[in-house]
Design a protein around this nucleic acid. Structure first.
Lengths: 213, 213
DNA sequence: GCCGCATCAATTGTATACATGTCGTTATCA
DNA sequence: TGATAACGACATGTATACAATTGATGCGGC
């Protein structure tokens, strides 16, 4: 039962990964029995994983109380990104007041790493936001942001793949945020972050309409 | 298996209630077998309820992966209330921009009901914040606030019982929030709400130190 | 007297069998 | 021919038995 080897955790991690990566798409069914067979396990750990995913908002329950990958209306998606944007903005403002010089240097390093032409920009993007969360020095806020992050990832992950130009604009926005944080200007950091998240939402909604979703 | 009759939900609701009411106190053990006996059920639904409570932050895991009612350091408690305060402030600001005249009237009614000498002020307080959440018109933000609310309730519930004077000041703060919202002044509503939550935290920390916690 | 190891007990993790409810299908009746 | 009710299959919900891990305790050696 060592923590890393629990079957339920493995199933949870794997399903989470597949949903976020888009291998499992919104509306896809997730039957306990079928998944148990696929993972060569009993229904018990699969069941636990599904319930956790449901409480995290990645999975919803359909007719017959069946599990399925969560679908989201544009309205709810808008709510999600609005909340995420406001919380990231709050986080940026708090970080502007609380980050140490060392933290700031780390943030700069993360930005520079994302500059490489072959760098994994999605990963660098995640690290940037994570560093900001750490800098805000509020565990609970960090937890809430992590949760909303996971919840929005299925829709954010494809952003950079499909819109290469988005990388450049996103990078510029990150630099502007760093500048504001370094200047200890919480209000400006929050404002820029709000714009950053709003732009991301616009790009995503644009992609969805292209795909006819 | 109609949703209201699921054993796991009943156990979850009952444990949640007891933790919030203080009948189960931070650090108390919650063994699956013992609870199963107490509820005359098998471990399975009890287990599901405990996992849900853990994911909601009301329950944590101790040595031997045992479940126990969550304990909180003062630092984490501060983080929780800071986050809750900022989110309530955000909510108030959004409500100031989005609430309809009808919504405002309902908010006023709720405040008036809380005025009665024998009224249950804790309940009126909860209704006030709930109405504000509805007025902000953002489902996701409402969900997040609900969760943080439940998580902080064990520490907030005793506030009005132990400090009768707190009721009057809390009522005044609510009136100030309503005024700001009615005036469509989001910034002022947010500022007043921040102060409101900060005062609550101060009262709670004061109570905890009195109890020698 | 103290440190280390082995054994033990208690708790959660997992597997499997059975119960129960819901939805789709079909057959029958008006 | 349409609607309705019964039937059946399939999903999750629950109960119980067994396995595995962990923290504690006692014993023995140093």
């Amino acid at each position: 039962m060592s923590s890393a080897l629990r079957s339920a955790d493995q199933v949870h991690a794997e399903l989470s990964r597949q949903i976020i990566a888009g291998q499992l798409r919104p509306g896809d069914p997730l039957a306990e029995t079928a998944l148990a067979q696929r993972f060569s396990l009993s229904r018990t750990p699969v069941r636990e994983a599904l319930h956790r995913l449901a409480s995290e908002g990645l999975v919803e329950r359909g007719p017959r109380r069946a599990f399925l990958v969560r679908r989201m209306s544009h309205a709810t998606l808008r709510d999600l990104f609005e909340t995420l944007g406001e919380l990231e903005a709050l986080c940026a403002a708090m970080a502007a007041h609380r980050m140490t010089a060392t933290d700031l240097a780390r943030l700069q390093t993360i930005l520079d790493e994302g500059d490489g032409p072959h760098a994994d920009y999605a990963a660098a993007n995640a690290r940037f936001h994570a560093a900001l969360r750490a800098g805000a020095q509020n565990e609970v806020l960090a937890e809430v942001l992590d949760e909303l992050d996971r919840r929005s990832l299925p829709w954010r992950s494809a952003q950079f793949d499909a819109r290469a130009a988005r990388i450049d604009s996103s990078r510029d926005e990150h630099r502007a945020i760093l500048e504001a944080v370094a200047a200890r200007d919480g209000d400006r950091a929050a404002a820029v972050m709000r714009g950053h998240m709003a732009t991301s939402l616009a790009v995503i909604l644009d992609m969805l309409s292209d795909r006819g979703a």
